[in-house]
Amino acid sequence: MATMNDMPDHIDELLTAYLDGELRPGELQLVTVHLDGCSNCILAFHELKETRAALRSLPMLRAPESLVPHGHDEIQLSAYLDGELPTTEYRLVFDHLQECADCRANLHELDAARTAIRSLPGLDPPEFLMPASRRVEHKWPAVQVRVAAVAAVAAVAALVVGVRSFPNTAPVSIDLDSFANRHVARASVEPGFQVIPAVHSGGSHP
């Protein structure tokens, strides 16, 4: 702390602008040259960086549904299903599901599709669908995998569970519990995952 206060304010301030990518032309040179020879400023820089990171780690809360129309976001539901949401987000989705029949129905379809997809044998996709570089690694970005999963809903869900809509009746709440348990189970196995917002590769599933 003392280090930060010992510094001339203008250099100090440049460090903040540097962190935010808000330096004016010419200032970058000044900062980098100064940082090269001043251990106080290097320390101060790290302190500012940590403080900024802490601020930016504050969860984005969801406004009440009654105020802000939401998008019934499918990707969010997938993340929820996969236990990939940080705890605060998870609670919001969970609460939303209690109230929103549309999203509950979507969740069930996604779940059925996911189960179906995972039960499929691991065949290689046709060559022409796979870019050369990816053919080797079999590693798609998570979002792409999810989009593919959603796209497969109609076909696979129809195949396995039959095309039907899910009524919003009693069994739903039981199923919500099972989703919750999945989240809990995952949390107890991977204590870190609740804290850090989902950063994951497509291949992390068991």
Binding site: M1, M4, D12, E13, L15, T16, A17, D20, L48, T51
Partner: peptide
């Protein structure tokens, strides 16, 4: 912003 973050720290 600078002074605010610093104070926060």
């Amino acid at each position: 912003i600078h002074r605010g973050r610093k104070m926060l720290r």
